[in-house]
Design a protein around this nucleic acid. Structure first.
Length: 266
DNA sequence: ACCCCTGTTCGGCG
DNA sequence: CCGCCGAACAGGGG
């Protein structure tokens, strides 16, 4: 179910295994999840390697094993990472388990929407290097956002925010949260943003990312009560700003929640 | 039974 | 070329 904050939370779940060797690897017999990566190669390479480091960028994760092993993880909609005791017996949806001395590192995904990549190389894998810079980095500027609006003049903001090449790590609830804070209607087009709206959207994108990372990324804490997130699924839920009932409709193929009196279309 | 779902990719259509 | 839509992937929860 993860967007960038949840991805960061899951990445940290494996931290207790840092610096430890992989003694045994178990793969689920159904290996569709490893499209592109050869299960046998994963097995033989990771066994005996040491878990050295990990990174998250948007919804992508990269786990580093020495020597020269890189495990890429994308959780899709239903993937998760956790740790278990070493006597743990993998269940139906546990597709990859790395057993260490004191810990088992588990990747689980009931619906197999996630994706595991494996690279064996000295340098970090090309797909990782090609990822767009984080929305919290200096590279993501208001003028860059303005250029996105100009380039995709006819595309609804909701559809733009869901594009991982433009807004890495943003998913359905974060997109709605950002638009709500920016007072922009999800159907408003990229080309209809005024300069001040671009600045607002830029500011709120970074705000939602940084707060979600701080609150969810560390301990999966609760977001503040006034966030749209806490109202969007409630039946008869109202906008925390206006008290008016929230609307729900499919926009850009996803259920979208917004506050009609609050978010402006033009 | 039926509907929903924090993701992504693909093919088809206008 | 653009943008939108539904389907597919496949399972669980309300």
């Amino acid at each position: 179910m993860p967007e960038l904050a949840e991805v960061e939370y899951y990445r940290r779940q494996w931290n207790s295994g840092l610096g430890e060797k992989i003694l045994r690897v178990e793969l689920h017999p159904k290996v569709r999840i490893f499209r592109g990566a050869k299960p046998k190669k994963i097995l033989s390479s990771l066994k005996g390697s040491t878990f050295k480091n990990s990174f998250a960028n948007g919804k992508q994760m990269l786990f580093v094993f020495s020597p020269h092993c890189w495990l890429g993880v994308h959780l899709g909609m239903t993937g998760s990472l956790r740790i278990e005791a070493v006597d743990f017996l993998p269940k139906k949806h546990d597709h990859l388990v790395l057993f260490q001395k004191k810990t088992a590192l588990v990747f689980s995904d009931p619906r197999l929407f996630g994706r595991i990549r494996f690279d064996f190389s000295k340098e970090e894998p090309a797909w990782w290097k090609a990822l767009p810079p984080s929305l919290l980095s200096k590279d993501f500027t208001a003028s860059k956002l303005g250029a996105i609006g100009d380039r995709f003049r006819r595309t609804p903001l909701k559809a733009l925010l869901l594009r991982q090449d433009l807004f890495p790590g943003i998913g359905n609830w974060m997109a709605d949260e950002i638009l709500w804070r920016s007072r922009l209607h999800p159907s408003k087009k990229g080309g209809d943003l005024s300069p001040s709206e671009v600045r607002t959207l830029h500011r709120e994108t970074r705000f939602v990312c940084s707060q979600a990372l701080r609150i969810i990324g560390k301990n999966w804490g609760d977001l503040p009560p006034h966030w749209l997130f806490n109202h969007r699924w409630k039946k008869g839920g109202v906008c925390p700003q206006t008290g008016v009932e929230l609307k729900r409709e499919t926009i850009a193929g996803r259920t979208t929640c917004w506050s009609p009196a609050w978010q402006k279309l033009s």
